[in-house]
Amino acid sequence: MSSPITTEHYLVLSAMLLLIGTVGVLLRRNVVVIMMSIELILNAVNLNLVAFSHHLQQVNGQIFAIFIIVVAVAEAAVGLGILIALFRNKETVLVDEIDLLKW
């Protein structure tokens, strides 16, 4: 019954996704892409949770994944709203040009 694909495989995959997402957040200048990268990070976490849920045969992990998706959706809605307002006011989507809070 034991599959050759173990939970570890999923964890490694999750870690890779997380890293790639972090790279996007830290390096890209385009706000839209940064938000997509955040989605990637959240998905990495979800994958992790589902993997453990499968591993432990407990459904709670999937419940958490659902809540994370809810939060991700809310974040996307508000974030993109902010983005539109920002673009209307500053005519740019590049984060290092948005520096009004600089000292």
Binding site: V73, V93, V95
Partner: peptide
């Protein structure tokens, strides 16, 4: 849902200028 929202915003916000800019920090 979410990706359609993203695509909408990308269409709404003019990103042509951003695509020509330097991409990395």
């Amino acid at each position: 849902g979410v990706m359609v929202l993203f695509l909408f915003v990308i269409m709404l916000v003019n990103l042509d200028g951003a695509a020509k800019e330097r991409q990395y920090h």
